[in-house]
Design a protein around this nucleic acid. Structure first.
Lengths: 343, 343
DNA sequence: CGGCCGCATGTAATCGATTGCATCGTCATA
DNA sequence: TATGACGATGCAATCGATTACATGCGGCCG
């Protein structure tokens, strides 16, 4: 272990200011409890020593780390990094640091990781719906009764605090839009789900199709990976079909980008030959050719609302409390990647 | 402050296993120092109590937070989020948590923020070249002699540990490629810099132009913002010119995307009327229309190398050490957004 | 058989900040 | 002048884990 010039402690400040450390502590946290003269001496001593509070010692004493943990399936995805952006910003404003856990879902060493993160954070912001929620209940972080706010995916009957978007309605409205354009042959690249998370998005798709009296053809349903690769794979499968859907609903924008790109390379034009609709409205969606029709997710707002909720719980009164459930509205953004089906 | 079911401590485990807390601690950190029988009793007690180590208390005692801080200018940008991805992954593997600080650069409350972050992290990974380095020297984090690894931008003579890419050569090679295509009228959308960071990228551009015997026209140099908006603004300015450059070097891919998109909307074709080259090779670059020619930055590797360097310093022997300087190679990725100039 | 060694374990100090309680001095009031 | 109140400050315990040092025990060797 390296040896550093040791940082000044509150004792050092106390010595310089010729008071006890208790007085220094009070001067820093509740100045009105200290006489003006002493306060000035202490301020001066703080500056001359270059003292900064040791957060670790403070956390130990106060039993609050002033840190939250955010679990994200994939930071590299702009969808999540925008959320993270908002979370870090708002948490910092309220004096909290943000620890990032990436790709916890599906990690067989989850137990270890959890051991690793436990007791470092006061609460958990869970954006990773690929985490197995039953396993989650067993984790020290959760069993330690630390507040947990779940986001990004809905678990209908779980008594948890949640912030999400109106996934089901969003998908229904996206598919409804395709139907309205005249499409009857509609496929989808769905997002991955875990056994215990019945995706609202799947349900929304099925519901919209049913309502329109359209069949769901298994060979028109692809499994995506929330990344460009999944869209490419779906496109290759699409190209190999005898009878092809004329419109495709994609689980996120990356998938749509991969799909459209691969078709273009094969000489198939979007939207003339196939309409594609994405989900999220990432920054580049508007600037693609064709510009991507998509369901905008209020990502920034999700981050803000989830952070505010978690910190309010952390700083609020103890005791039972009905779980909060915020539902944010998605918005259909119509651009150039969708059109009427070919004649 | 909320009141939670308190997590079991090492004392609780000791009581259940009928040993002292010292023995429990030893059993957990150096099992060979404890007899087999006791070790088993302790393991059992750990499981039955659901004990997990309190990292805060541990950090206080060991004077190591097992946490690093990463300062990033903009998490929302895929360039940085990919780096963050790698950093979080590798740090976790070596037992370190990652705290994220976003947009510290240009923040007038930097001092406060620093006060806030000081003593929570063992070291700093600085990817934010927009931070004022002189001010940085005054920060407790740095003065406390915590290791600092600078990345993403070069400060030629600073005695700091650095990980960067061959920025100057990369830009030279990008511009050289445009020259090779026959372009003589070349403009640029440069990235922002701070007064004390002489951007190697600027230098590379100037050098390449000089070498080719081409003038740098001030009205062909735009200031970007590392985002799509900057590219759009540059495009609007470009459209208004009487004499236009036929090729443009952009400081990053987002800028190029905004530029190309805005021109397309104005009916100007890339690359037929103007060639555009980006920088970074973000994931979508390949899937745009036209696919973007760009200088690929080894982002993932940058994150890995910087993390490894910082952690090696943290865990290595104390004492003076010549600063490390890693330079990673960029790679020109030729795609469809560049072509010979119009006749 | 005595002394010494080494293993297993316990005791208590330590890391740095916070805070309940004790103390001291000052001032106002009876 | 005595007494009580109050403001300012110090003392010392506390948070939970680690570890140097002390202790006790069994076994081995001379």
């Amino acid at each position: 272990m390296n040896e550093f010039k040791k940082t000044p402690t509150i004792q050092d400040v106390a010595r310089v200011a010729q008071v006890s450390s208790a007085t220094v502590s009070r001067a820093l946290t509740s100045p009105e409890r200290v006489s003006e003269a002493t306060r000035e001496r202490i301020t001066e001593a703080v500056l001359s020593t270059g003292y900064t509070v040791n957060q670790v010692a403070r956390s130990l004493r106060l039993r609050a780390a002033k840190t939250i943990l955010i679990a994200i399936p994939n930071i590299g995805n702009p969808f999540y990094s925008t959320i993270l952006d908002a979370v870090v910003q708002d948490a910092a404003e309220r004096g909290y640091g943000v620890l990032v856990a990436n790709r916890l879902g599906g990690d067989p060493t989850l137990g270890l990781k959890d051991y690793f993160y436990s007791n470092r954070a006061d609460g958990l912001l869970l954006f990773d719906a690929s985490l197995d929620l039953e396993a989650l209940q067993d984790l020290p972080l959760v069993r330690g009764n630390r507040p947990l706010v779940l986001s990004c995916d809905d678990i209908p009957d779980a008594p948890l605090d949640m912030v999400m978007t109106d996934n089901r309605e969003a998908v229904e409205s996206a598919v409804g839009y395709l139907v309205g354009l005249g499409h009857t042959k509609i496929g989808t690249v769905r997002s991955r789900t875990t056994p215990n998370v019945l995706s609202e998005r799947h349900a929304g798709f099925e519901q919209a199709m049913q309502r329109a009296g359209l069949p769901i053809r298994p060979d028109w349903v692809w499994q995506g990976d929330h990344a460009i690769a999944g869209g490419i794979a779906a496109a290759e499968s699409w190209l190999a079909l005898d009878e092809r859907p004329t419109a495709l609903f994609c689980g996120n924008d990356e998938t749509a980008i991969g799909f459209i790109s691969r078709l273009r390379r094969a000489g198939v034009d979007c939207p003339r030959e196939v309409s594609v609709i994405g989900f999220d409205d990432i920054a580049v969606a508007e600037h693609l050719a064709p510009a991507l029709t998509t369901m905008r997710q209020p990502r920034h707002q999700m981050g803000k609302v989830a952070t505010a909720l978690l910190l309010d719980i952390l700083e609020g009164p103890a005791g039972e409390r009905p779980p909060a459930r915020h539902v944010l509205k998605s918005e259909l953004i119509i651009r150039a990647s969708t059109a009427a089906p070919p004649a």
